[in-house]
């Protein structure tokens, strides 16, 4: 029982990470019908930037080792902010170099170009930080908290809390605010949105900035639980993409649901048979695609004739 509860907690933490990145996929897909296939590499770059930020703030230089007392909450928060801003700018650069030239041309050039953008970012990061993993202790310490007998890391609680708060904020912005409604109008019909006086290109750039920022946020949240490295992004991005497909790529709430669902499945199955984790996740994906191709909460898009 305790073990299951424990798995639920770590599954929720993992799920929160997948959900944030999946939401990033949803945002660019709904506004441009494209995805950033370099999202994982951006996530990793954002994370190593943030870890270096903590090191510099702690006066350790670029290649030091972080002790738990080096990672104070404010250093962590400042680095997080830096990472989110840097990634937002990278998202804008990605849009102008790898997405915009190919929008509306048909074909899948943007798949290759966003993948390529990610690889360029990854290799640049590799040249700066090297291949080894960087350890970053949690700003909340490592004292296990007991909930119902199960041990939970403070960082896991932080991950769940932060991802849920960010998602609720985004959800509220999209549904209740003027700018959110404008973004939804752009997602639905760019010409009609233009006729409302909405600056469509600006909204699209904003979507890419937010999407990349979410990846940066996810990366630094998970780093104290796993580690930070230039290679950490691919598996997270792949799971997040799966989460978006399972939940419904065109539905933000579906992407969040898919993220948590995948995290829980991965964690629960891992408890039982670690080697069945990936198998069960991808079987779940295939099952969902067969039964409901548009995803759990996705809506079938009627193509205009």
């Amino acid at each position: 029982m305790v073990a299951i509860l424990q798995a639920v907690f770590s599954g929720l933490a993992l799920g929160g990470i997948y959900a944030l990145v999946a939401l990033g996929f949803n945002i660019t897909h709904s506004t441009t019908k494209t995805l950033n296939f370099g999202q994982g590499e951006l996530l990793a770059a954002g994370t190593v930037i943030a870890v270096s930020g903590v090191m510099l703030l702690a006066g350790k230089g670029m290649h030091g080792t972080l002790d738990p007392q080096d990672v104070t909450l404010w250093r962590y928060a400042v680095s997080l902010l830096i990472s989110v801003v840097v990634l937002g700018l990278l998202g804008v650069l990605l849009y102008y170099t790898a997405v915009r030239p190919f929008i509306g041309l048909g074909g899948l050039s943007w798949v290759m170009s966003t993948l390529g953008f990610g690889i360029i970012i990854q290799n640049t990061a590799l040249a700066i930080w090297g291949p080894s993993a960087m350890v970053i202790p949690s700003p909340l310490g490592d004292n296990v908290i007991r909930i119902g007998g199960a041990g939970v890391l403070p960082q896991e609680i932080l991950v769940v809390a932060a991802s849920v708060v960010v998602m609720l904020c985004l959800d509220t912005v999209m549904r209740k605010t003027k700018i959110g409604k404008a973004v939804r109008a752009v997602a639905h019909n760019k010409n009609a949105a233009t006729l409302m006086g909405i600056n469509v290109p600006a909204v699209v750039v904003l979507a890419f900035a937010i999407s990349s920022s979410l990846a940066g946020l996810a990366g630094l949240l998970i780093a104290p639980i796993t580690t930070a490295s230039v290679f950490m992004g691919l598996s997270i991005a792949l799971k997040a993409f799966s989460a978006a497909i399972v939940g419904g790529l065109n539905n933000a709430r579906g992407c969040m649901l898919g993220g948590f669902l995948l995290g829980l499945v991965e964690s629960m199955v891992g408890l039982w048979h670690a080697e069945l984790r990936e198998i069960s996740i991808f079987m779940l994906i295939i099952l969902v695609l067969v039964l409901k191709p548009e995803g759990l909460l996705g809506t079938r898009v009627a193509e205009k004739v």
Binding site: K181, R184, A185, N189, N191, A192, L195
Partner: peptide, 12 residues
């Protein structure tokens, strides 16, 4: 402009 085919935002 009130465009051809109405083009309202159906989900709002």
């Amino acid at each position: 402009q009130c465009p051809e085919g109405r083009q309202i935002f159906p989900d709002q």
